[in-house]
Each structure stands twice: as C-alpha cells, then as structure tokens.
Nucleic acid binder design. Structure first.
Lengths: 182, 182
DNA sequence: GAGCGTATGTCAGGATGCTGACATGGTGCA
DNA sequence: TGCACCATGTCAGCATCCTGACATACGCTC
C-alpha cells in the first residue's frame, strides 16, 4: 500500500523536472546573447503584460521570493530597462514600469522565448499543447490546494493561472496569438 | 510572423515552470522533516535504482552539474547514507552505493515523494497521467534534439528517458501512449 | 609508444536564490 | 484611539548551483 516512487522513467514528477530543466537551459542559452537571465526575462515579461506591478507581485509571478526579485529589479533598473516609483502612491508597494529600452529588450527576448517554446512543443498537435497546458495547470492546482503549502514568502504561492493577479489582459482565446504558425 | 510569448497564462512554458516550482516546493516541504533536500533525495533515489553509479552519472540524472553533485555526495557520505569506493576500479569513476541507513532514508523519502506526486496528479485519470508523462518526454526530446544545446557540463544533457543509464526502463508504458505523433 | 580527445573527480570563485529579520504602511477589530 | 495582523521593501547571512580550471585515466589514431 505504501507506494514508493518506482522507476524514475515512469515518474511524472521526474519527467516534469526534466522538462523544466531542459526548458530553462534552452531559454538560458537563447537569452544569453541579450545579456538576460531567465529571471530577468520573466520580470520584463510580467511587467510588459501588467505595467505597474510591485516587486512582491512580480516575485509571485516569477516563482521567486521578494528578496530575489528585489535583486533582479536592482539590476534591471541599473541597466535602464525599468523604472520604479521613488515613493509609494499608496501603501508600501512601489509600482514598476518598463522604459523604452526595456520594452525593446522585452520584444527581442519574447521572440526568442516564443521560438524556444514552439520548438519544445513542435511534436505536439495544437490540441496536444492545450491538453498539456491544462494538465499542468491541473497539477499546479492540485498541489496548491493543500493546507501545508500556504503562507509566508513561499514562491509557489504564486498567482495561479486564471486568477486576479493578471486581470487586465485576458482577452485571448484558447488558441492564443502564438499558435499554429508553420 | 515573429511570434512573441503572448499571454503568460496561455503559455505552456509558463505553466511548466509553475508546475515544476510547485512540485519542488511540495517535495521540499515533505522532505524537510527527514533533513533531506530535493537534490539529496534525487541522489538517493538514483542510487537506489542503480547502485554503483558514478558522481558524473548521478549529476546527469539529477539535472545538476558534477560539481553540485560532488557537494551533495560529500554531505550524504558524511551522514553515512552512502559509500564511495576509495579507489577507482576502472577509469576515474568512483562507484557509489547506499548504506543500510541510506536505504532506510530512501524508503521513507520515496514514500513521501510518491505521495506528493500522487497528490499532484490526483485530478488526472490514469490515462491522463500517462499522456502527460508522454507529452513531457516529447518536450524534452524536442528541446534536446537541437545542435546548439549539446556539450559541456550542461545539466540538461541528462540521461534521456529511454537510454542506458537506468536500464530497468520501460518508458513506453503498457497503456499505449497514443499521444506521441510522429 | 606518443599524441589527441573525452570523461571523470576535484578545487576555487562567483552568481543566484532562500531564510531570517526588521521597519514601515495599511486594515480590521475591540 | 489603540493594538493585533498582514503585506511590502530592504538588509544580512547562508545554501545551492554554476562557470572556469586543472589533473588524471581511458580509448582512439598515427
């Protein structure tokens, strides 16, 4: 009854880890020419889709802690890719926005990342991609609906995929803008 | 033509990252009572399935560099969970094996991880799990069949799911994954 | 046998991310 | 009003992992 992991090659978790590692490596390699790390790109992408996000919100969206995101923000700000409000208009949250240079960098980076993602899913059908996406979201939901996982600076307490944190833009349909090239 | 990422909530890559982060967090939380990190558990699990693996082989299996695995091995060896041959029977590779304590720790850890994985996939059907697994493997294969990604200490150059390193494999599971179109 | 390429183990340094902690600003409640 | 509570920004310390480098051991070719 007490189940163990069994053959790793049959483990969904192992495959998930493997896929995430491969994706990260590919993104890293693709973004390196731009001088961007995956974390930095994630930050830019989030800001591009939702200008004015605070550091803590960005951290949740990128699955890192506030502290890590803080360091990322410092680097990007120093490079002139984003601006942070000097004073908090309300509360302590400092809204962050991309600069023109930041938007330009994001455009290049986003193209690269989209190509990587397209390459990753090239052997799947369009329906297969949606199915995989839905399965992954279901896994996230199943793991996050656990009492023990909530609270604190836990990065996994991130914005879940169809929720409030990114409300402004949810116009796209199931077959988003980047589907079915070819 | 030039595709960008589009809405993050529709991105398979984003969902993959999210799922991997959630899984890692859940595993971390589950393993903490045992005093094991995810990397340490991965190492034990690999050794349990394939005694005598070298550090470099373990590194590939756990998607980290040899150097990182080296540090993990030192820690586990110091805790008496594994033994490394003092001299290389052939080449430079030092075969590594679990001690009795290591096997005991692995049994506990494996149970915990299996429970996490089971929880993660609880909303999927058995066929859905296999499908997800197959899709993930397909993604890994698609990313790794790129010339630019090969070589060096790259952790993503790991043992792919149907290869020599874990001989007991049978990745094409019995339920017939119809989802690998090619 | 000498030379080359590759794989491995190992050390040193640095980048990244996390935990812990503290101060500040907002909110809810007695 | 006062106070507990929570979210945020930020600093300090530590763990993990990576890149770079070097030495060693094997297989291959000449």
């Amino acid at each position: 009854m007490v189940q163990e992991v069994g053959d790793l090659n049959l483990s969904v978790g192992y495959a998930l880890k493997q896929a995430a590692a491969a994706l990260r490596t590919a993104m890293d390699a693709g973004l390196r020419p731009l001088g961007l790390s995956v974390s930095q790109y994630s930050c830019l992408e989030l800001l591009g889709q939702r200008p004015g996000l605070s550091a803590a919100e960005l951290a949740r969206g990128a699955f890192v802690t506030r502290q890590s995101m803080h360091a990322v923000l410092l680097g990007l700000e120093e490079r002139g890719l984003l601006e942070r409000a000097a004073t908090a208009p309300q509360g302590r949250a400092l809204p962050t926005q991309l600069t023109a240079a930041g938007r330009a960098a994001l455009t290049s980076a986003s193209r690269i990342v989209a190509a990587v993602e397209q390459r990753m899913t090239q052997t799947l059908t369009a329906g297969g991609r949606d199915r995989l996406h839905a399965d992954l979201i279901a896994c996230v939901a199943a793991l996050s609906t656990d009492p023990a996982e909530a609270g604190g600076d836990n990065p996994s307490a991130a914005l879940d995929a169809n929720q409030s944190a990114l409300p402004s833009d949810n116009p796209a349909s199931a077959l988003g803008p980047d589907s079915s090239p070819e």
